[in-house]
């Protein structure tokens, strides 16, 4: 039989798939480039002062990033302060304490928290959680330590505190699931030898499991941090959207992402838009940096672990 002459499609296939792969690289570069170009009017006009100025007044064309950056940092910090210890003990429960069936169910439920869209967190936060906070939690906190600057002001519910708590709920599943995997990787022999010496479960966890997995846990925290810092809708619903810096956690504030979500469509002026895009650039830069650090950390860890074995 005479073989049919085919045009060889293999090179085309290879180049097409390679182009798609490189497209991802180009996209990241393109985002960075676009944000820099888009932010140019503001970069030129405000210079470095943009980052340290607190004024935000579209009417007078004065823009500064400080209150948004501050709000992003504080709400993220509250979220991480709550989420990290909570995730650690939940992972401990899932790996060491719960029977397998309970662990699978509870683990599944916690992971489901990650699948809830952020706008749902926003709705729940605005209409249910913030009022709950204002009625039941904030007055008690204020009574607990009268005059404490963090808990001053009227209990509105909406503000830094509720934004932070909701962020904690949103990053909780990410940190928990990575921590759980790390805990599960600790060789049973190592744990069993500690149990054999008469250690309690907590002692095994503190002296064996956590030291063994600490680097993975830190990696998980970076992952959670990256999520929290760019979270938009849930924060926008509950943070209150006020361009001012207050010491009190009860006060309304804003974050970079919430400012973008609220004001982007209103920005008619080139400079206003430039300032908003520059805020986006700051956020993008921070997340890039976080990921580079996380990657460097994980690499270092992998090398260290490799050297040990």
């Amino acid at each position: 039989m005479q073989p049919k002459t085919h045009t060889n499609l293999d090179p085309t296939f290879r180049w097409l798939t390679l182009a798609s792969g490189l497209g991802v690289v180009l996209l990241v570069a393109g985002i960075l480039y676009t944000l820099v170009i888009g932010a140019m009017p503001a970069l030129k006009h405000f210079g470095f002062g943009f980052l340290v100025s607190q004024s935000w007044d579209p009417a007078f064309m004065e823009f500064g990033a400080l209150s948004s950056v501050y709000g992003t940092l504080i709400s993220t910090a509250i979220g991480m302060l709550i989420a990290v210890p909570l995730s650690l003990v939940i992972a401990l429960f899932l790996v060491e304490l719960a029977p397998p069936a309970v662990s699978r169910l509870a683990g599944g439920a916690i992971e489901l928290l990650a699948a809830i869209p952020s706008i749902i967190y926003g709705m729940w936060g605005l209409f249910v959680f913030a009022p709950f906070l204002a009625d039941h939690v904030q007055p008690r906190l204020a009574e607990l330590i009268p005059g404490f600057p963090l808990f001053e002001g009227p209990p509105m519910g909406i503000g830094m505190l509720s934004a932070g708590i909701i962020l904690a709920l949103m990053v909780l599943p990410f940190i928990t699931s990575v921590t759980r995997d790390v805990f599960q990787m600790v060789p049973a022999v190592v744990k069993e030898s500690a149990y054999g010496m008469g250690s309690t479960t907590w002692e095994v966890t503190r002296k064996v499991t956590i030291p063994y997995g600490i680097q993975g846990v830190v990696g998980a925290c970076f992952l959670g941090l990256g999520r929290a810092i760019g979270e938009t809708m849930a924060v926008t619903f509950v943070i209150g959207n006020r361009h001012e810096i207050s010491a009190s956690l009860f006060a309304a504030g804003n974050s970079i992402a919430s400012t973008l979500a609220n004001e982007f469509t209103e920005a008619s002026d080139e400079l206003y838009l430039g300032a908003l895009i520059e805020l986006g650039l700051v956020l993008f830069g921070v997340t890039l940096l976080l990921q580079l650090v996380a990657r460097w950390w994980l690499r270092r860890t992998a090398r260290k672990m490799g050297a040990v074995r």
Binding site: V25, V28, I31, G38, A257, T287, R295
Partner: peptide, 26 residues
């Protein structure tokens, strides 16, 4: 090259979705 593509994909996955919105807007 593959490591670079993977790295870029991870970066893109970690990019806040609002930034993607700003990019597409521009």
């Amino acid at each position: 090259t593959a490591e670079t593509v993977r790295f870029a994909a991870n970066l893109l996955m970690g990019t806040p979705s609002i930034i993607i919105g700003v990019f597409v807007y521009v």
